[in-house]
Simulated assay, not measured.
Amino acid sequence: MSRELDRRDFSTNKVTPVQEAELNSRASDVSTRLPGGHPVRISSFDATTGNPRVITSDGASAEKGNYIPRALDHVRSVSGVLGLAVTQPPEFTVDPHIQGTSSGAVIVHLQQQYKGIPIFQAAQAVRFRPGGALQDTTGSSITVVGEVAAASRLRIQEAVLRAAQHVAVPHADELEATDQFGEPLNLPSVDLSGFVPTVIATFSNLPTCQLSSQLGRSATKSKHACCGSRCAAPCAWPGR
């Protein structure tokens, strides 16, 4: 059984006139420093983060190949336009598997991180036109203001136990759930009596503090990440 716990507030539009004006000003400023002096403009905003959803590149020079380094260089160059704080390093990891379309267009996906830890649902897709010119950058970026501690405030055993407790019993809205044929799912409950997660392997060389734990008598292995005060495994840095 899986269940997502998302503490973000989607009821408030975080795009304010002040924020919009500041980011548009950053776009105008950075346009003069991009390769070939090609301008960028914010085409749409993300109401959840207050940051741009789409940054369009106009008149970028066409160049075939080198899509991954070009995409990485571009998001780093426009990091301020993406909404990253002045003191926030532009940390992105690139998916080495680029996507191509039948028309010849190319898409490169990047994951935003903080101190080497992936930020939940913070990613960018850099799109190139069939001729190789940069088209736009679309996605969601998270602003991290000030220093945020990377150490977890929960022991991993406690985090695993809380996650298990969260999914052990179906919620009220799940009791009437049906499958694709309209048949009741009859979701089971799990008795956690005597359940004690046991760490059997750790990977301390990774910023995400991945480890494997033995889940009770089933001896199931699962990977988890330590990521701050709201940590529940598996997880990543929570966005705003």
Results as ranks from 00 to 15, higher is better:
158 E>G: 12
145 V>D: 14
227 C>A: 11
216 G>T: 13
25 S>C: 09
62 A>M: 10
147 E>N: 13
64 K>I: 14
172 A>S: 08
7 R>N: 01
95 D>K: 12
186 N>R: 05
21 A>I: 03
55 I>Y: 00
105 A>L: 04
43 S>E: 15
238 P>A: 12
180 Q>G: 09
226 C>I: 11
172 A>Y: 04
52 P>H: 03
65 G>R: 08
15 V>C: 08
86 V>N: 07
15 V>E: 01
176 E>W: 05
47 A>I: 05
56 T>A: 12
201 A>P: 02
76 R>S: 04
153 R>V: 14
217 R>T: 15
71 A>R: 03
189 S>P: 02
109 H>Y: 12
187 L>Q: 11
193 S>C: 05
113 Q>Y: 11
134 L>W: 01
53 R>M: 14
194 G>A: 05
10 F>S: 10
155 R>M: 12
202 T>K: 03
240 R>W: 03
163 A>T: 15
141 S>G: 06
189 S>M: 06
149 A>W: 08
187 L>C: 05
187 L>N: 10
91 E>N: 08
39 P>S: 07
119 I>K: 03
113 Q>V: 11
115 K>F: 00
11 S>N: 11
238 P>Q: 06
8 R>K: 11
96 P>A: 04
210 Q>L: 11
9 D>W: 15
204 S>L: 09
156 I>Y: 10
197 P>Y: 03
186 N>C: 09
196 V>A: 14
171 H>C: 09
188 P>N: 04
60 A>W: 03
186 N>I: 00
50 G>A: 06
74 H>G: 00
191 D>R: 12
240 R>K: 07
204 S>F: 04
35 P>C: 07
82 L>D: 01
171 H>T: 09
83 G>Q: 02
229 S>W: 10
122 A>W: 02
